[in-house]
């Protein structure tokens, strides 16, 4: 075989991407190793996160040095992550399905009789939906702190504090709606013309055509988009950190309870973890990061299988 240096060079460059991914997994895993041994499986099911006595002499458990009384459990954060993500999906799905249907079917209908001087509205509207996705997470958080949290605290929360699960879920929902909406919009536009027209010919109203013929046809893609959005919500950090209230050692009891997600907890623990002389807290945080990576990997892989599945609709000719 002829050796082509140019190709090999480009291949080497592109192999850096998988290499980076492998490095991330490998280093997190080796660094977390001692923590994984020390924490065991109970890591996932214990409620208390206690750094132990950082100023006393460390004790040795099974040959691993840990601060006295240290106990690392992340059930609270797993619960916070799952709860906020699922509630955000519950909010986001109806909104984004409605938005996508309106953009795909209603806007062209409304625009049909527009005056000649008026530019089409749909590109501008769908651009606005896409732009929601590019707003930085921290700006969503800022808006949450400045607008949403005071509103919820004043009108909804019995405790008077708006920081909590509901605020986090609403902000997350706003962030993931464009993912679901654009996925659905793209696939609605690709539904075969024949199917649409046959439904009309049978006497269905326009809304029935959309809801009973077109939506079922793009069901798989829609679910794929929702799972993709779920993956994004699970790993979202800054916005959640700013509005969630940051609970430790207590499971959420209502939608107004303060919560912590896995991602937001990692950020909030930087300072305290650094003061641990045995480094076990930093190692346990690496283990948390690994857990978060595995969860999002599983979710994103599911989304990929669904969106590229054989059940996709044929493109409109």
């Amino acid at each position: 075989m002829k050796i082509r240096p140019f190709r090999l060079f480009l291949l080497a460059l592109s192999l850096l991407i998988p290499a980076a991914l492998c490095a991330v997994v490998l280093f997190l895993f080796t660094y977390a190793g001692q923590a994984i041994l020390f924490n065991g499986l109970g890591f996932l099911s214990r409620i208390t996160w206690n750094l132990g006595n950082l100023y006393g002499d460390p004790v040795t458990v099974n040959g691993i040095q840990v601060p006295q009384g240290a106990n690392y459990g992340i059930l609270v954060f797993i619960a916070g992550t799952l709860a906020s993500s699922f509630i955000s999906i519950l909010i986001a799905v109806p909104l984004s399905v409605g938005a996508a249907i309106f953009l795909a079917e209603a806007v062209p209908e409304l625009e049909r009789n527009r005056p000649r001087w008026m530019p089409p509205v749909r590109p501008a509207l769908s651009m606005l939906v896409e732009l929601v996705a590019v707003v930085p997470s921290v700006v969503f958080g800022l808006w949450g702190v400045a607008v949403l949290v005071p509103f919820i605290g004043k009108y909804l929360a019995p405790s008077g504090s708006g920081y909590g699960l509901l605020s986090a879920s609403i902000v997350l929902a706003l962030m993931i709606t464009p993912i679901i909406a654009t996925t659905l919009l793209d696939s609605l536009m690709q539904v075969a013309k024949e199917n649409r027209e046959s439904a009309f010919a049978l006497g269905a109203t326009h809304f029935e055509v959309v809801s009973k013929v077109m939506l079922p046809m793009v069901r798989t893609t829609l679910i794929g988009g929702i799972v993709l959005a779920l993956g994004r919500a699970l790993g979202e950090t800054m916005a959640v950190l700013m509005v969630s209230g940051g609970a430790i050692n207590i499971l959420p009891t209502s939608i107004f309870s303060p919560v912590s997600t896995i991602a937001s907890f990692i950020v909030s623990q930087l300072d305290s973890a650094e003061s641990d002389p045995t480094n076990m807290a930093v190692r346990s945080l690496a283990e948390i990061a690994l857990v978060l990576f595995i969860i999002t990997l599983a979710v994103n892989a599911t989304a990929k299988l669904l969106t590229s599945g054989a059940l996709n609709v044929r493109s409109r000719k």
Binding site: I17, A20, G235, E236, T237, F293, T296, L297, N300, K304
Partner: peptide
């Protein structure tokens, strides 16, 4: 590469 895109930035 898609997996890397989906990895949470905090990780």
């Amino acid at each position: 590469s898609d997996v890397l895109t989906g990895t949470p930035s905090i990780v």
